[in-house]
């Protein structure tokens, strides 16, 4: 439950304020709107790789998250699996990324019935997360960061959640709506 995680995070930050500043630095470095999303190629299964460029021509949601196996009812990715039909209305693809290895991902996907690729940013560890400014060096995990990328590969929205707070899906849906509106304006 993220509420418990959150409690831990608050406790940590009050005790070690100097370290919190380091984490804050990561917050500022998340890639922002207008930038070309760095391409990557990561394993989704032991013998299958997924590249960001495979999805050129449609919106892509990138969801970096700290670790597989956070408790069930408040799990961010389980929620996204439920909201997937809404993302699909925008023809958007969702790619989830963490530093867990592929075998953990496979078991996690099966257990939570996830209906989108879950990619292993495993070797070099956190390499892709770093490119997006979504890596927590001290902890060795991806941050909980979201990106909405347009059909040309440009980041149109990004969001970094505070420690332990699961962002939900509202921000992604608003960003996809804004993307649609922007593209409609461009065409007219």
């Amino acid at each position: 439950m993220w509420k418990l995680e959150n409690k831990g995070a608050v406790r940590k930050s009050s005790k070690r304020s100097s370290k919190t500043n380091k984490i804050t630095k990561t917050v500022d470095s998340v890639l922002g709107p207008g930038k070309l999303a760095p391409n990557f190629s990561l394993n989704s299964t032991p013998d299958q790789k997924v590249s960001l460029n495979d999805f050129r021509g449609q919106p892509v949601i990138l969801a970096f998250y700290p670790a597989d196996w956070s408790p069930v009812c408040t799990d961010q990715l389980s929620l996204y699996a439920m909201v997937m039909p809404e993302f699909k209305k925008f023809n958007a693809e969702l790619l989830a990324i963490s530093v867990d290895n592929i075998w953990s991902h496979l078991a996690f996907v099966k257990d939570r019935k996830l209906n989108f690729p879950v990619l292993a940013d495993f070797e070099p560890k956190g390499g892709v997360s770093r490119k997006y400014g979504a890596y927590k060096e001290k902890i060795g995990e991806s941050a909980r960061a979201l990106f909405v990328i347009d059909n040309k590969g440009i980041i149109r929205w990004s969001h970094l959640s505070p420690d332990g707070i699961n962002p939900g899906a509202d921000g992604i849906l608003s960003a996809l709506e804004n993307l649609n509106k922007a593209q409609a304006t461009e065409k007219s």
């Binding site: 709107p33 929205w157 804004n178």
Partner: peptide, 25 residues
């Protein structure tokens, strides 16, 4: 949009980009 920076539309060379207007403290 939870906890994000304030977002406003900005027109650049005929494109509508979503850009943060201020950095979140």
């Amino acid at each position: 949009m939870s906890g994000t920076t304030t977002v406003a539309r900005k027109r650049t060379k005929g494109k509508t980009l979503l850009e943060p207007t201020s950095k979140e403290p």
